[in-house]
Nucleic acid binder design. Structure first.
Lengths: 345, 345
DNA sequence: GTGAAAGCGCTAACAC
DNA sequence: GTGTTAGCGCTTTCAC
């Protein structure tokens, strides 16, 4: 077991002071080329690399971003994590993962743990955080961004899709498709994504003289969604919706399976189904789901931007509320409007 | 912006020494109840929490485990990450994520970065690591476990399913189902999972007097798999395989979609499809895939166990090669053998 | 441009 | 059981 190589050892070998070594490994420091060469050579030979933790202690910057996430079974989140991690890595940051237990977790405890690691920032995905805790982060000068969730907590940033506009566009699409009995299967009522999507959807219907034909709650959970769909569609044909917007793709797949394999309904002939997220399986032929695309790459870019802005200049970085437009992705799970695609101009 | 609360401040407020404070927050230390009370009270009032990084510096233990992963689009990995993160959290550890870029990444650089964080251990998933680098980790006394990949690199642990046995069981199942023209769509040839699954599958066929009717490589990539399936099945009916084992579920879904929607084949009437992993979508009715279950929970438990064993007693923790049996999950994508399920005894 | 010296916040001997 | 004293490996003034 090799000893740990320290900057001091490198210094001795290179015949310079320890601080010279430090300077060589500090981007903006002033060192002569000669010193750089000597130090680099010695470091190479010894296999020296700066200890990030020690650097973090003295500089106060850990270059660690804490990510709080409740579950990974909605594939929007793994996708997000991959993009986020890559984006941060490019900036020299890394993601420390904190799962809040499925069981209505003590998320505040988790955030406390995060803070203990002296993270430079926190991203929360699919979880709520008490405003007391948010205050604590602000006090500690650790920027927080809520990803895919809007929260009006003071001082906290958020990045979401434009869920209201998305819901509205879906309503327009379904009505244009000639549907008359349009239903909605909701997500967990506490989530802003759920609220905004539904509000937009209802608004869109109302603008076109319709309203929800049926509504049920799937809690963003496949089993709940399946049951909700069963109850909603297992009725006489004339009392059955002819289209349904399911609040996210993950539930939509379960709903489609239930409709097809349990209720023997054809999609989209008997009923149109649309979702929200555009996770990868939505493009799989077995589902071929018409849905709103959450542009994870853009959302992550905004998230990273908000974080870094605050880290680099805490004083002048106001919290931001970013909303990214979500394009409609038309596939085969919903009947197309006549004259589709629409003519430009 | 609140100042950072240090143990010294707590000490002053509690009227004790700074080391007394430290002891109160150190599990096995000897402190009187009276001191504990005073310190806890002062800490509470100040909102003090020990700085994990400072602790890490002096103790040499960061309680961070580095996870290297190449991609998250095979849903086996998000599942793994969730379980791993939860399991480690319970032990007071956390996961620092490192993505190696899709593009045949410089994984060695990534591991170097990990080492810079003074991690207590490293888990690699779906990536290979040069043996030179492995040596470096061993030298640094950082245990490494290869998750879902067997590598005979010295000093490195690995945890995998029993891929050979799994492949063999699949062969037996397919032959028992009356198949005569059995094909295989391989994963990336460099992966041990691919090699072992194929070897087991071939062995199983050979034992029953059969051999591969066709073989093609899907590279563990859906597009490649789709193309491979197309070429393999887009032939006269009598030259077409009647069953295919696709090296993982992720590719199997793409293959099923191709067979059904492009080639208009019925599953399992025209062709049986089996996969490996049992990721969540395998249970979705649209796929209903017969597959071998990789028991992620057990695999993770072994991973954590191997890591902690080494961390707690580096001298006596030999690297281990763990292989977890994978149960066959029979669903509807493959024709059942006669007299299924088999009688016990 | 470079070295000496002072910590970052904490744990771990070491005396008492 | 408690306080005192050294550092952990590094960055960062500060003189020179």
């Amino acid at each position: 077991m090799a000893e740990k190589v320290t900057s001091l050892q490198v210094a001795e070998r290179a015949g310079v002071s320890q601080s010279a070594v430090s300077r060589v490994f500090t981007p903006g420091a002033s060192v002569s080329q000669k010193t750089v060469d000597k130090v680099r050579k010695a470091a190479e030979e010894l296999g020296y690399r700066p200890n990030v933790l020690a650097r973090a202690m003295v500089s106060g910057k850990s270059r660690i971003i804490g990510l709080v996430v409740a579950y990974l079974d909605n594939y929007f989140y793994p996708e997000t994590l991959e993009i986020l991690s890559n984006a941060l890595q490019e900036q020299g940051y890394h993601v420390l993962v904190f799962m809040t237990s499925h069981t209505a977790g003590p998320i505040d405890d988790v955030v406390q743990e995060i803070l203990d690691y002296q993270v430079d920032g926190i991203v929360t995905a699919s979880v709520a955080m008490s405003s007391k805790l948010s205050q604590k982060c602000i006090q500690a000068n650790v920027p927080v961004v809520h990803f895919n969730r809007f929260e009006k907590t003071q001082g906290v940033s958020s990045v979401t899709s434009d869920n209201f506009a998305g819901g509205r566009e879906l309503a327009q699409f379904l009505v244009a498709g000639g549907h008359q009995k349009i239903a909605y299967i909701a997500g967990w009522e506490g989530a802003s994504t759920q609220r905004d999507r539904e509000a937009g959807f209802r608004a869109g219907l109302a603008e076109l003289g319709q309203s929800l034909f049926a509504r049920s709650c799937g809690e963003f959970d496949t089993d709940h969604a399946r049951a909700a769909a069963h109850a909603m569609f297992n009725v006489a044909a004339d009392k059955r919706p002819d289209a349904v917007f399911v609040a996210n793709d993950h539930m939509a797949f379960a709903v489609m399976d239930e409709l097809r394999f349990c209720l023997d309904l054809k999609i989209p002939e008997d009923v149109s189904v649309v979702g929200f997220d555009d996770v990868p399986p939505a493009a799989w032929r077995a589902y071929d789901l018409t849905t709103m695309r959450q542009r994870a790459n853009l959302m992550v870019a905004e998230t990273v931007d908000a974080l870094l802005a605050h880290i680099e200049d805490p004083a002048n970085a106001a919290p931001r509320q970013v909303s990214i437009s979500a394009p409609l992705i038309v596939r085969g799970s919903a009947r197309l409007p006549a004259n589709w695609p629409p003519q430009e101009g």
